Amino acid sequence: MKDETQFSPKQDAEAVSVSDMFNNILNEKIKDGAVEKAIEVKVDEFIKRVADDVFSSWGDLSKLMKEKMTEAIMPTAESLGDIPKYHDFVSKRLKLAAQSFYDDKLVEVLDSELKEIMSEVPDVINLSWLVEKIVDVAREDESEGKISLHINKSYSSYWIAIDKESDKSEYQCDFRIGLREDSKTGKLTIFSLKVDGEDCRKSIALGPFYRFEKILYNAYVTNAEFALDKGQFADDYETEWYYD
């Protein structure tokens, strides 16, 4: 609402200079407390502004409090030791999962594998049978030829080396079989087997094995009997084939 109070001059403009008029009005305001009131308002605003600055996140008090709280907390934090990192957590979870697999699944897998192995092991593996199988493999590539066969005896053991290619030395052959002779029964069992240079003793499974290779491997892991059924010399076995 517009103030309708009319202004009535208190001083005679003809008798008082502007400078004196200013001084007179100023003195009157000072006497009425206007200046004090204005200063009080400004002081209140100043105090509030200072308090806001002090308690702000960038203020000195905030910085000091942060510093003091850090000093109080750090010794406790240091006593905690290393806090586990994310990759440590993942590693532990993987180990736990692996252990769970071994505990819950490995027995089932091994039982299934052993069942298959036992079902494919004849009572006796004859060397003539093995030679025949390798000849059959070689015959698929050549219409006629001869495989490599070596039989060596060392004390109570035999070493047999076989390869589908001819003229291979004992240590070049794909198959090398170690046989141990029982002193009481005279029976031979496989105690060492290498296939393509791989030692079967160092693996629970090699392969994939198929056909006679799988049967030979199964005979090895079950300690089956192996017989030199045609004789103790390489010439006792049919290692050659001809075009039919």
Rank of each mutant, 00 (worst) to 15 (best):
M74I: 15
A224T: 13
E213D: 15
H87M: 14
E170Q: 12
E240N: 13
D235W: 06
E170Y: 04
I147A: 02
F212K: 01
V131E: 02
D136I: 07
K92V: 07
F212T: 01
G197W: 01
L64V: 15
K105W: 08
E240R: 12
I204P: 09
L96N: 07
I39G: 00
M1R: 14
Q232C: 08
E14R: 10
K37Y: 01
V41A: 09
L188D: 01
R176P: 00
Y86N: 06
D174V: 11
N23C: 10
S157N: 11
D104N: 14
T222A: 02
A34M: 04
L193M: 02
S157V: 05
L216D: 01
E165C: 11
F212C: 08
F55E: 12
E142P: 03
E132I: 05
K10S: 09
T70P: 02
G145T: 02
N223F: 12
E213F: 15
D44V: 10
R211K: 08
K164W: 04
D141T: 14
L96V: 08
Q6V: 07
Y158M: 02
L216V: 00
E116A: 15
K48T: 12
L179A: 01
S17D: 05
W159C: 05
N24A: 12
Y158L: 02
S128A: 05
H87G: 07
E170W: 00
V35H: 06
D229Y: 04
W159S: 07
Y155N: 14
V135I: 10
E28I: 03
I83M: 11
K37E: 04
I125L: 15
I39Y: 01
E132S: 14
S169W: 01
E120I: 13
Y171H: 05
K2M: 11
F46Y: 12
V109M: 12
Q99Y: 06
S143Y: 12
N24F: 10
K187W: 05
S183L: 08
D136Y: 10
S17W: 03
P122R: 04
M21V: 06
A205P: 02
E120R: 10
G231Q: 00
I83D: 12
F46R: 11
K133Q: 14
I83P: 01
V124A: 08
E113C: 13
F175G: 01
I25G: 03
I30W: 07
E67F: 14
C200P: 00
V90Q: 06
R180H: 09
F212R: 00
K164N: 05
L61G: 08
Y171R: 08
D103I: 00
K164E: 05
D52V: 07
S128G: 06
D52E: 14
Y102A: 09
K2Y: 11
Y155D: 15
K85G: 09
L188S: 01
D196L: 10
L80W: 11
S169T: 13
D163S: 03
A77K: 13
V195W: 10
K115N: 06
S17E: 05
D103A: 06
D123S: 08
A227E: 10
K146C: 10
K95P: 04
R180L: 09
V50K: 06
K202D: 09
F101D: 14
T5S: 13
Y243L: 12
F101W: 11
I147S: 04
C200I: 00
H87E: 11
D182T: 04
V54H: 13
Y86C: 08
M21R: 11
F191K: 03
G231F: 01
E142G: 00
C173K: 00
S57R: 07
S154H: 11
L130A: 02
V90N: 00
S128E: 05
Y210Q: 08
S119N: 09
